[in-house]
């Protein structure tokens, strides 16, 4: 391991969890006073520890994006608190430290790249933080390598594919040396190849560079490798568990409009008909083994 070891932080400096959310509630303001405000989040509790890969899943409007906006200090909760390494996101003075600590990658690959050249885009966050020129150049080289985009240093964003643009966005966040990255549906607008590229990058950051990841998505299959999955529906957390624990709750997931890996669903259907199969089958190979034992 070389200097990339610097990314591995199994203990945050303050000894705090990276993300801590307590009794968080939020309703979007309504223009019309007669209208009932829609509760986007009600009483959310969540902790993400250093080095973890936590997935948040839920359909559109389940509150998962609202949560990410609160974590980044973009909106202020009505009640409850969110802390990033012990810094309360309501604390206006800490806002830049919070955003530097928990970096954020958004859904639309086009609308988060600022510069017409890849390398200056990656440098943007560091420039804002006042990093000296030679340090920026070094870091740009390093983070482009981490996301496998070194060959595109001088490329122009509009010539890249969606997956490549998202990897540039990730590099731009990595360059700010965050302790955690919040991914707000980064794959929703990508084709299967692009999704594969981005998921590979996210997993690599978590596994090989110790990056804490909070991944928000509505694709179940992207969370097979997560440490923990949080299922949200109607602004509430309805289940928390390991991927196998969550996926085996086929009936609950279907009820709230989420997909289940096909093999898990097939196992569920066969079990209903009396087959003695494990509940937590995820892959084709596990299914073949279970059926041909």
């Amino acid at each position: 391991m070389n200097e990339q070891t610097a990314y591995i932080k199994h203990q945050s400096p303050s000894g705090e969890p990276i993300i801590r959310v307590e009794n968080l509630s939020y309703a979007y303001p309504v223009e019309d006073e007669n209208q009932e405000p829609k509760q986007a989040l009600s009483d959310i509790n969540l902790t993400v520890n250093p080095g973890e890969f936590v997935g948040i899943i839920g359909h559109n409007g389940s509150g998962k994006s609202t949560l990410s906006k609160i974590l980044n200090g973009i909106i202020v909760p009505d009640s409850g608190d969110a802390w990033i390494e012990g810094m309360n996101t309501k604390d206006a003075e800490k806002i830049w430290d919070i955003r530097k600590t928990a970096g954020m990658v958004f859904q639309n690959p086009d609308n988060q790249l600022v510069s017409s050249v890849v390398e200056t885009d990656v440098a943007f966050g560091m420039e804002n933080l006042g990093v000296p020129s030679d340090k920026i150049k070094e870091k740009v080289t390093e983070v482009l390598d981490m996301v496998g985009m070194s060959d595109y240093r001088k490329a122009r964003p509009h010539q890249l594919s969606g997956g490549q643009k998202q990897r540039i966005a990730i590099a731009g966040i990595l360059a700010m040396k965050p302790d955690c990255i919040i991914f707000d549906e980064p794959t929703a607008m990508l084709d299967p190849n692009g999704r594969g590229e981005v998921m590979k990058t996210i997993l690599d950051l978590n596994r090989n560079h110790g990056m804490t990841v909070l991944h928000i998505t509505h694709y179940m299959s992207e969370l097979v490798n997560a440490d923990r999955i949080v299922v949200m529906d109607n602004g509430k957390i309805v289940a928390v568990g390991t991927p196998r624990e969550i996926f085996s709750k086929v009936a609950m997931l279907k009820k709230i409009g989420l997909d289940v890996p096909q093999m898990t669903e097939l196992a569920y259907l066969l079990r209903q008909d009396g087959y003695d199969l494990p509940q937590d089958i995820l892959t084709i190979r596990e299914m073949v083994e279970a059926l041909c034992h």
Binding site: R99, G103, E119, M126, N128, L129, P132, S133, I136, M176
Partner: peptide
Amino acid sequence: EARCYRGGAGRTRM
């Protein structure tokens, strides 16, 4: 803003 942009003050350049 999520990438800490807050105008030109204190900014450096690559």
